[in-house]
Structures are given as C-alpha cells and as structure tokens.
C-alpha cells in the first residue's frame, strides 16, 4: 500500500478555488483543513522524501563516528548525526498526519523506501571514503540543505513550517560544525589540504545536482504545482545560484579550486556561469537506487528495521497486557 496511492475524489471546483484564494492571501493550511487531494499528494511526496533523506543522510556521516580523529570531533559528529535522526522523526510525523486519514502509517513510508517507490536525496547515494568527505558533507551538503530549507519555511503548510523552524535552528550548529572541520583541513598540512580538495572534486557534481535540474523554457508540471500551492517559492536554479554565491567565495577563501574551469560570476547578469553536471544521472542512476552506495545504505536501513522489530513488538506486547489488565 504505497503512500502515494491516495484515493481519487471528485472535488468541488468552487472549493478548490476558495482553497487557492487562501493560499494567495498568504494563509497557512493546517492538517485538519480541507485541502485538494493534489495539494496533499505534493506535500506527501516532498515531506516523506525530506524526512527519509534526513535518516538516510545520517548514514554516510555515522560511518565516520568511530573513526573521528579526536574525541572532541567524535562528540560533535555524534551530536550532529543524532540531530539528523531527530529531524527525520519530526518530518515523518508531519507526513504521517497527511496520510493518516487513509489508514496509512509510518510503516508504509518505510516500506515505500525499501521497495524503491520513495526516493532519498541524491547526495546520500554517494560514498564518503575519507574524513575530508565527512567535513565536506557538514560544510557544503548541509549548506545546500539550509538554503533549501530557508525557502521551504516560507511555505503554505503550517505543520511543515513548524517542523522546519526547529530544524533550521539546529542546522545553525551543523553549519558551524561543518565549517570548523573544513577550515581545520583547508588551513592544515599539505596532506590535509589535498584530502579536502579531493573530497571537493568528488562531491562537486553531486552538490550542483542537489537542487535538481534547471528549469529552462518549460517549467516541469510538478514544479509549477508546488509554486502555485506555495509549497516552494523559488526555482531549482535560483537556489543553486544562491548556493554558489554563498559557498564559492568560501571555497576560494580556503585556497581550494572548484573543479570547473568555466565557473565565473557574470557581473552583467548577476549570475554564476558554470558547467552543468549530467542531470540524466539523477534520473537513470540515483532515481533507480543504482548509485555507488544506494543499495548498501538501503540494506543498512532495512536490516536495522528488521533487527529491531522484536523491540517494537515487545513494547507493544507490554502495552497490550496493561490494557487487558485495565479492562479486567
């Protein structure tokens, strides 16, 4: 039972109009408000993917917890990984409340992930082979996420906005944490600098892809819908430009080189000119869970789910016994 199979309903066009008028007035929508099924579906797609990506995103970083170079670094990284799992919990709660009226639950969200119906973010399909990858994820992947989240928090769905406010507050620690790790390497020994540069070379395309393909003459219909519903307020390319404006100067300040010799800021248009990565990779490889680490990380998630099943069941059994005792 996929979370995306929501019942087809005939909707009153006047009611839909009234709903869109609320959006246009800048009103916020609550979980129990009437909403068009299509608005609900767009939210489920976005928020379930966001929530599951927080959880899958903890995996590449958690790999580095036992191998962190110092105890201090280990404490910080562990705290950060825990935050990501916490963000996952918040977002899954928001998604669950949207699918709950149709008898769907968190278990259905996870099963969609295991079945490949629910995607997780492209960056989390990539390997993190060195400590510099962990640093770079904290600095630039989190940086990209923060830019996206600051846009999403302007959205029309109040429960998602409430979750994002808490997440953004915690992300301020993540940003400094990632910058601190990257500064230490970038300003460190030649070997450390080399390690960070190599990580940047490995991650550059994935970072550009983070925001999705650029919208050209024709905006994809999903994008148009999300803009219309004010679920998002900026395009992929606008977000990518913001990312470049914020982070390319930081990359330069660390004495690193962006692996794109065509990259430059065009004063005339006020935009960054750069070489696009191969976006078909997103659709054909990542989209099919065939990225370098897709299967391994899905396996890790699935096996945690299976191995902990007895804990969930034991907790429920105890509760059932208590309920029975209460009835007697």
């Amino acid at each position: 039972m996929s979370i995306f199979d929501l019942p087809a309903v005939r909707e009153d066009p006047e009611q839909v109009e009234a709903f869109l008028a609320r959006i246009d007035r800048g009103e916020k929508i609550e979980a129990d408000d009437w909403m068009p099924m299509d608005y609900r579906l767009q939210l489920v797609k976005l928020i379930a993917m966001h929530g599951i990506s927080e959880i899958m995103g903890a995996f590449p970083e958690k790999e580095w917890v036992p191998r962190a170079p110092t105890l201090r670094r280990r404490l910080s990284l562990m705290a950060k990984v825990q935050d990501e799992m916490g963000h996952g919990q918040l977002l899954l709660r928001v998604a669950e409340d949207l699918i709950r009226p149709f008898g769907k639950t968190r278990e259905d969200i996870l099963n969609d992930l295991y079945a490949g119906r629910l995607k997780f973010h492209n960056v989390f399909h990539m390997p993190a082979p060195t400590w510099a990858d962990a640093a770079l994820i904290g600095w630039l992947v989190d940086g990209a996420a923060i830019i996206t989240q600051k846009m999403l928090v302007q959205g029309s769905y109040a429960p998602y906005v409430r979750a994002l406010r808490r997440i953004i507050m915690e992300e301020r620690f993540h940003a400094f944490h990632g910058e601190d790790m990257s500064q230490a390497l970038g300003d460190g020994t030649p070997e450390q600098r080399k390690m960070l540069q190599e990580a940047l070379n490995r991650w550059w395309d994935a970072l550009l892809m983070f925001f999705g393909p650029p919208e050209e003459e024709q905006m994809p219909s999903n994008q148009l819908k999300n803009l219309r519903y004010r679920i998002r307020t900026k395009t992929n390319e606008e977000l990518r430009q913001e990312f470049l404006s914020k982070y390319v100067p930081q990359i330069w300040a660390l004495g690193l080189t962006v692996p794109d010799e065509t990259l430059r800021f065009d004063e005339a248009t006020g935009r960054w000119v750069y070489r696009h990565p191969d976006y078909s990779y997103l659709r054909n490889v990542i989209g099919r869970n065939r990225g370098p680490r897709s299967e391994a990380r899905l396996h890790l998630r699935r096996s945690a789910f299976e191995h902990n099943r007895w804990v969930r069941e034991a907790l429920l059994a105890r509760q059932a016994v208590q309920k029975e005792a209460a009835i007697v």
């Binding site: 918040l90 709660r93 669950e96 968190r106 979750a163 969930r312 907790l315 105890r318 509760q319 208590q322």
Partner: peptide, 11 residues
C-alpha cells in the same frame, strides 16, 4: 514542542 509516536506514555 511537537508530537511523536510511542507505544506508551513512559516511552
């Protein structure tokens, strides 16, 4: 604060 899923009030 927010909401969460749990099997009992203690948890």
């Amino acid at each position: 604060q927010f909401s969460l899923l749990a099997p009992s009030p203690e948890i």
